[in-house]
Design a protein around this nucleic acid. Structure first.
Length: 356
DNA sequence: TCTGGGGTCCTAGGACCC
DNA sequence: TCTGGGGTCCTAGGACCC
């Protein structure tokens, strides 16, 4: 039997801020865009539980959060800092794993099948790890434990905040069945709507659905969803994961069609992408720009180079050329983004053309 | 609800080569 | 001049997750 755990940090960004600003503990606090007295255009990234009491949730427009609680503590995101804290946390988690897979800045799967031989041992391991993270880092987390990644993930959602939930193999179907279909990992807004139109309102409905019908409608993803709904997932905890793209995007202060302002922004983001690329030691091949217009329509344009490049200046050159070629003149833009992809580890010794 | 920024994976058509 | 099939790369877009 496999035993898998998902360790998920609770309200991570705000929890990090509480570490260095203990005075905001117990106060409603939000990490996200500047609310600008209710005029801000961004969203809430994370809210602590004191803020959630006022209905504040991640993803919510920041001005709505501000409307709900003007005197909450509003802090800008400091990803470099969260990244550092995350590294320390993940090192603790990894020390308890046979296999370790970090899935985001604040979440990681661990395979513990070798070191835990029973549900009880797995539970003990989870408790110990949670305690260690609390004592050494001062941070709360929730842990889901089960026989595969999907159910471990769903269990951790149930355990929040600051909890541990074990779902045994023979409990998995029951555990999932009454939850709304939209709670299933892999079912987002669009998919939920389609599934509900089919009459599948709970995960249990989906579990009982005819897989042939699901495959007809959703191709191979239909089969996967059917397995998920039945608590089945044989995917491995993936140890050697490498980043596939690096990007920056920014919502402009206000919508604009001013070429100078837009290309300035593209150049600045290209520089950041170039620095990140260098830090991580990659050469890139594809440059993509993403444009979001005032009406939220989005388009992407990309260009493959004939060679791999480590040249940061080239990112901006290609990106601006793409913009000049494809942007509809006069269209007001809300957001622009720059991305490099098709990455290859680059030692810095060999000539880049050898990677073409 | 008038909606950020960082990612991943999948699909699909067309180009191009054999 | 008309005709396949397979493989891979390029490009654009969509859905999803945190």
């Amino acid at each position: 039997m496999r035993l898998i755990a998902l360790v998920d940090m609770d309200y991570f960004y705000v929890a990090c801020e509480e570490l260095r600003h203990p005075e905001i503990k117990n106060r409603p606090a939000v990490v996200g865009s500047d609310p600008k007295q209710g005029e801000g255009r961004g969203v809430v990234m994370t809210a602590n539980y004191a803020a959630r009491k006022f209905g504040i949730r991640s993803g919510m427009p920041i001005y709505l959060a501000y409307r709900a609680k003007k005197d909450a503590v509003y802090l800008p995101a400091d990803f470099d800092y969260y990244e550092k804290v995350s590294k320390d946390v993940m090192a603790l988690v990894k020390a308890h794993a046979d296999k370790f897979e970090q899935v985001s800045i604040d979440e990681a799967f661990i395979d513990i099948s070798k070191r835990a031989k029973s549900y009880d041992e797995a539970l003990e391991l989870a408790k110990g790890l949670q305690k260690e993270i609390r004592e050494k880092m001062g941070l709360p987390c929730s842990i889901g434990v089960s026989v595969n990644k999907l159910v471990a993930k769903m269990a951790s959602d149930d355990a929040k905040p600051n909890g541990i939930k074990l779902v045994k193999e023979d409990e998995a179907k029951d555990f999932l069945s009454k939850k709304p279909v939209g709670d299933l990992y892999g079912v987002g807004r669009k998919m939920r709507k389609v599934l509900e139109d089919f009459g599948y309102n709970t995960i249990g409905d989906l579990a009982k659905a005819n897989p042939v019908v699901l495959v007809e409608r959703f191709k191979s993803y239909g089969a996967e969803l059917h397995n998920y709904a039945n608590g089945m997932d044989d995917s491995d905890v993936q140890e050697n994961w490498e980043v596939k793209s690096i990007s920056r995007e920014r919502t402009l202060e206000s919508d604009t069609s001013d070429r100078h302002e837009i290309t300035k922004s593209i150049a600045a983001m290209s520089k950041e992408v170039g620095e990140e690329l260098k830090k991580q030691g990659f050469a890139y091949k594809v440059v993509t720009i993403k444009l979001r217009y005032s009406d939220f329509e989005e388009s992407m344009r990309s260009r493959s180079l004939t060679h791999r490049s480590v040249d940061a200046d080239e990112i901006a050159e290609v990106a601006i050329r793409l913009f000049d070629k494809y942007a509809e003149t006069g269209e007001e833009l809300r957001k622009v983004g720059v991305r490099v992809s098709n990455l290859v580890k680059f030692s810095g010794q060999k000539r880049i053309t050898e990677y073409a």
